[in-house]
Design a binder for these strands. Structure first.
Lengths: 123, 123
DNA sequence: CCTGTTAGTTCATAAGTCGCGAACTACGGG
DNA sequence: CCCGTAGTTCGCGACTTATGAACTAACAGG
């Protein structure tokens, strides 16, 4: 098993981010990671939006998100712990994740787009 | 030739926008349309980033952008005039296009992301 | 009206990407 | 050492994308 490749902040691209988040399942995974401090294993996302996602598919989704620089994955014992790299992404592209999350929430009818304080999604 | 399909504002989706703009050539086309009032024909974009894009490929790019709701295309005589639907997109997803344009500019080393006044593109 | 030109669309197909079951790897535990 | 859990990789069929070739639409000139 080859070791994981996490791009450096400078190698994160807009295309990569847009492509990664243009898939509804990946978007759901990222949303589940971005608003929390605690790492979550892949197995946490085996059920997305009423559907059971096969392990191999999930693995690919995580790889795309990882290679886009959106998340960091580290093996912790037998499982894989994933955390969002939001602060780094924000440093490279200020406001991008925020805007995408706000748009996603608006579309799916949910409030709260901001990180901790539920602003930005605005009126 | 079937008439064009432009989604209504409410049918514009985040996935559609992200997918459309995750391609460098489509991003270049959209950037060329979004910061101007004047409509531009498809032929205006036959050369993108040092490369001559085939007509059929261009046509597909415009279709994707159109179906994502990012642009409007209308036949005017022998050519096709394209304009950005930015105001409408902004209404549905406030700040999204702004953030993506800012990120794109930052990545490609160009300043000026905002609409008319060259702000927003960072400090 | 016919012919030609320009601008773009559609079709067909080759090349590339994705989804997912099956097989494999890694890390504990007993 | 063998087993179970969590995830990765492989292989292949299904779906997408890119592009040359053929087609369509809107004019202009004769």
């Amino acid at each position: 098993m080859r070791p994981f490749t996490h791009p450096s902040v400078d190698n994160i691209t807009v295309e990569g981010i847009l492509h990664a988040l243009s898939d509804p399942e990946r978007m759901a995974i990222y949303v589940g990671l971005v608003n929390t401090e605690t790492a979550r294993s892949c197995a946490n996302f085996q059920r997305i939006n009423e559907r059971t996602v096969p392990k191999s598919t999930l693995s690919q989704h995580f790889r795309i998100l990882r290679e886009a620089g959106l998340i960091r994955s580290e093996r912790q014992g037998v499982e894989m712990l994933n955390t969002s790299r939001r602060a780094e992404v924000d440093k490279r592209f200020p406001g991008l994740v925020d805007a995408i999350m706000a748009a996603h929430c608006r579309q799916s009818g949910k409030a709260n787009a901001g990180r901790k304080r539920g602003r930005r999604a605005r009126a």
